[in-house]
Design a protein around this nucleic acid. Structure first.
Lengths: 233, 233
DNA sequence: CCGTTGCCAAGAGCGGCGCTCTCGTTTCGT
DNA sequence: ACGAAACGAGAGCGCCGCTCTTGGCAACGG
């Protein structure tokens, strides 16, 4: 009975995978705004209404692509970071940053879908938060490793974190940075959006006619943020 | 003859202004994806094809809204920054940051249009770059003032800017930061996208279920970036 | 003063979109 | 073997951006 049920469901799973594959290709080519269920159906040789058996709406298909995208970006970040010597903490951070940037440059529309403006009528289904945190987990582990190694050496002259941050710090610590004290969490939480701000600026054209050697400038900026956290040179 | 021609052109200008006003309201309510020429025309009591006399395409209307948005954001930033004591450089920076964030929170869809994923088939017409730099000019003047006042006191322990940055630094210096040395320009260029990364993270939902006191955390992070540049406490 | 020119609103229409509903057919569980 | 569920196809609804044509109206030149 398992075999028979899986027979039908296997076809269904394969068709859903084929739909997402085609949709991902369309997304990569034309962006989220250009993704059309009808075009995907056409390419599959189906009639448009048949698609709705598999994805009840365009937003559901987009949600699937978002989850895929978070997983792909997280994998790229993870692999880039894993290639560095475990004790080269600044190197791991830079590898993480370049890994994200390289993936974003290779998949600009997918990056925009994840970290740009939310496209659908706005929703962030529960399913997306787990894969969305993959990159942050890599970051948290890196910061935690550096702290436990006792090598964190942040430049002085910075104000302390606000008292209201303690609760957030505790939550972040429990989730991805076990054992890390509040002020380190706070600095990490400052640097983290800086990474995405830099990638988004480059990808969304804010650096046009401003910067020329984008790779070197990005590397410099991320090095600065790494030092800001306290990662040793 | 001037009077007669301007008579006709005045009506035209008024109609274009009315179109952009309605379009801006639709944009604020439904986002860029929900902006429809037909809906705007309907609200104006026109037939949809008549709109094309004034804006040849939807993208042209969006471009007009983008320019308006940059001007509005720039004005908000400028006024917030101008309200601070000229010698309170960190205060001016924080006012700039909060000014941008407050404007973004009040006009999320417009912010997304400016600093989120580029929505049209992608274009950045020349007309948009001048208004886009208003905020950066405020920032550049602030950094320049602080440098000329001799109060810049950046924490040490950071690597120098890459050699390839010199040309970019010269261009930035000429445009918005006259007299500022390369390493200060480089640090400013690191902090600047950090501001937008923080605002975008908050606005695009990346902080959901992560941070609770968003205002205090933002203030802390911007304070850190201000110190990173060297603005004195 | 009148004819020409050019701007304008309106209407019809094209192709495409997301999505719904109905209708035969196939497939599966019992 | 039979009823239920899943399925593909087709037609259709109301949107959308955009184009083309038509007819009215005002401005300008002879």
């Amino acid at each position: 009975m398992n075999a028979s049920r899986t027979a039908r469901e296997r076809v269904r799973a394969e068709l859903m995978a084929e739909i997402t594959d085609i949709a991902r290709r369309h997304l990569a080519k034309d962006g989220a705004a250009g993704l059309s269920l009808r075009a995907v159906a056409r390419e599959m040789g189906m009639v448009s209404s048949a698609i709705y058996r598999y994805y009840p709406s365009r937003d559901d298909l987009l949600t699937a692509l978002i989850i895929d995208g978070y997983n792909a970006a997280g994998r790229a970040v993870k692999e880039a970071e894993a290639a560095r010597d475990r004790t080269d903490f600044l190197g791991r951070w830079l590898a993480l940053c370049h890994g994200l940037r390289d993936w974003a440059l290779a998949h600009p529309h997918e990056y925009a879908l994840l970290y740009g403006s939310p496209v659908p009528g706005y929703r962030a289904p529960e399913d997306t938060i787990a894969p969305a945190s993959t990159s942050a987990e890599v970051f948290g582990r890196l910061v935690g490793d550096a702290f436990r190694a006792g090598v964190l050496d942040p430049p002085g002259g910075y104000p302390p974190a606000p008292a209201s941050f303690a609760a957030d710090a505790a939550r972040i610590r429990d989730a991805i940075m076990p054992g890390v004290p509040d002020d380190v969490v706070a600095r990490a939480a400052t640097a983290w959006p800086g990474l995405f701000g830099a990638v988004s600026f480059e990808l969304f054209g804010q650096y046009n006619n401003v910067l020329s050697d984008l790779t070197a400038t990005f590397d410099y900026a991320m090095r600065g943020l790494g030092r800001f956290i306290g990662l040793p040179e």
